[in-house]
């Protein structure tokens, strides 16, 4: 997998800005595809997914750190109509995402992601500043291929074989949610408060200098009991967010630089849909969301492919029942 491929994959569980009580909304998180050592035919196998980073083929471990700056500019209603934020509003969320991937076996790997969230809001005259841990994620991936599939030219059908990753990820409600006792208002939110299990698949093919990939995700949010809202005790009930599915297509081009380093540009198109939430089994028809995002990224890796530097921008293009956001991300990965 081309490490510098940038895939824009919407992520719900980085609860966005409280300016919208956005613990309930999903934001896009940039995917950065890592890069593998050139000694192994420059396997493009490695990178990132909405459900965790992916270790390059034949590497043992990887640490990834990314800084994201997400700005909000209005929102789309549940009928798709765009509306501006109240005058004087300035909503911003910064995230420091630290991830670690570890190889369990030749074709199995585990990763964990930990976001640290900083919300800075000025909303219609009211200001707030909150920092905290967001919702963490654990991911398990199976590499349905034994050999690196990146090639420089096509020599028969065998060279067209793609890399296929099959995985599952679990989102942990480690952030401050509307249902914890550490929150007083919708401005204090850093997490959604739900466990969610996702099934993931990535299909990628690199014939240098070109790469194409598709990423699919289907997530199931577990129902949870609620006995308090914003620090106030309520009559207990059960709530369940809707199932969600996401799809991302990306295309990349790689430049091979004179010092044997590489620079890859990736363009991506992502679709996210989440069904309506339920309260004690009853559907909340005012919930649910859809979002389309376009992304562009650049990634640079050194000659021995153990350090990758990345920058990306993702822009929401249209949606339903969700804020309009722009995310700029810078990051670095190191593989062992």
């Amino acid at each position: 997998m081309n490490p510098t491929q940038q895939v824009d994959m919407p992520i719900p569980e980085v609860p966005a800005n409280h300016g919208y009580g956005i613990g309930l909304f999903f934001t896009l998180v940039l995917f950065i595809f890592g890069f593998s050592p050139a000694s192994n035919a420059a396997s493009c196998c490695g990178g990132g997914a909405s459900s965790g980073i992916i270790l390059p083929k034949f590497n043992d471990a990887m640490i990834d750190m990314g800084f994201s700056n997400e700005t909000y500019n209005g929102f789309w209603t549940n009928t798709g109509q765009y509306k501006d934020d109240p005058k004087g509003s300035n909503l911003l969320q910064r995230r420091l995402n630290v991830s670690y991937a570890y190889r369990l076996a030749d074709q199995w790997q585990l990763s964990v992601g930990m976001p640290l969230v900083d919300n800075q809001n000025t909303y219609s005259g009211e200001q707030s500043s909150v920092q905290g841990l967001g919702d963490m994620s654990l991911s398990l991936w199976y590499e349905a291929f034994e050999k690196v599939t990146c090639v420089y030219r096509i020599n028969g059908w065998e060279s067209l074989k793609p890399s296929i990753y099959l995985g599952t990820s679990l989102t942990l409600p480690t952030g401050i949610s509307p249902y914890s006792d550490r929150v007083d208002s919708s401005f204090d939110i850093t997490g959604l408060g739900f466990y969610r299990l996702d099934a993931n698949i990535i299909i990628e093919k690199t014939v240098y200098p070109y790469s194409l990939s598709w990423q699919g995700q289907y997530g199931y949010a577990f129902e949870r009991p609620v006995n308090q809202e914003y620090g106030q005790g309520v009559s207990p009930y059960n709530k369940q967010l809707g199932n969600r599915n996401a799809s991302t297509f990306s295309a990349a081009y790689t430049w091979f630089l004179p010092n044997l380093s590489m620079l890859t540009m990736t363009a991506s198109h992502s679709e996210l849909e989440e069904k309506s939430a339920r309260y004690d089994g009853i559907k909340d028809t005012s919930s649910g969301l859809e979002k389309t995002t376009l992304g562009l990224s650049f990634a640079y890796s050194n000659a021995i492919r153990d350090w990758i530097y990345k920058v990306a921008i993702n822009q929401a293009n249209e949606g339903n029942n969700i804020p309009k956001t722009q995310i700029i991300t810078m990051g670095v990965s190191h593989v062992y």
Binding site: M114, S180, D181, G193, P225, N227, G233
Partner: peptide, 22 residues
């Protein structure tokens, strides 16, 4: 580090439906 952060976030990791005094 990861375990350290998880242990500090127990409340939503184990939600309850026991009524609580507000």
């Amino acid at each position: 580090i990861i375990v350290f952060f998880i242990t500090g976030c127990q409340e939503d990791l184990m939600p309850s439906n026991d009524p609580i005094e507000s």
